[in-house]
């Protein structure tokens, strides 16, 4: 049996967290926006070069800040996936704020940043310069839940990182 690791997706509302999970776990996509209430938990086994790991993915309700419910949910997480809507610059600030708040709840855990909605790049507000700067401190992926671009790579990277820790 592969080892299991808990990762939580954090980000503002409507940035595409549930869509990214649907793409990663079930390889599906729906363009209908359905807000997440509470949490939805899925899992998927990820094969790394030297082992397999079961990623337990917690898809949390989108918030610009960490409320008490989400604080409960992230307890025990091995890694965080910060999700940003590339077309909304404000969602980048929200993600960074959530990251900062989560650090009070969790020990230093691996983090990956997903700048989502790559399929709408002509409407992106998040600049390439900002992404380049962020990439220096956190693995950053341009993703599209619609096309799947960058999704597998982002989850695999986080899976790799969370298994490197005891």
């Amino acid at each position: 049996m592969s080892e299991a690791r808990k990762i939580c997706l954090l980000g503002d509302f409507a940035v595409g967290k549930s869509s990214l999970v649907a793409r990663f776990v079930r390889n599906t996509f729906s363009d209908k926006y359905l807000t997440t209430v509470g949490v939805k938990v899925d899992s998927k086994e990820v094969r790394l070069t030297d082992r397999a790991v079961k990623l337990v993915v917690w898809d949390l309700a989108g918030k610009a800040e960490l409320d008490s419910l989400n604080k409960t949910y992230i307890r025990g997480a091995h890694g965080l996936m910060l999700v940003v809507d590339g077309t909304r610059e404000a969602s980048l600030r929200a993600a960074l704020y959530l990251w900062m708040q989560s650090q009070k709840q969790l020990a230093q855990v691996p983090v990956v940043l997903m700048i989502n909605k790559l399929d709408m790049i002509d409407r992106w507000e998040v600049s390439s310069a900002d992404i380049a700067r962020l990439s220096e401190s956190v693995p950053t992926f341009r993703t599209s839940a619609l096309s799947g671009e960058g999704v597998e790579a982002a989850f695999t990277t986080l899976a790799q990182r969370v298994t490197e820790r005891p």
Binding site: L34, T36, V37, G38, V39, K40, V41, L69, T72, Y73
Partner: peptide, 12 residues
């Protein structure tokens, strides 16, 4: 305790 867990079909 895990409150408000979606167990599928948006049932909590």
């Amino acid at each position: 305790v895990w409150p408000l867990v979606d167990i599928g079909n948006r049932r909590h």
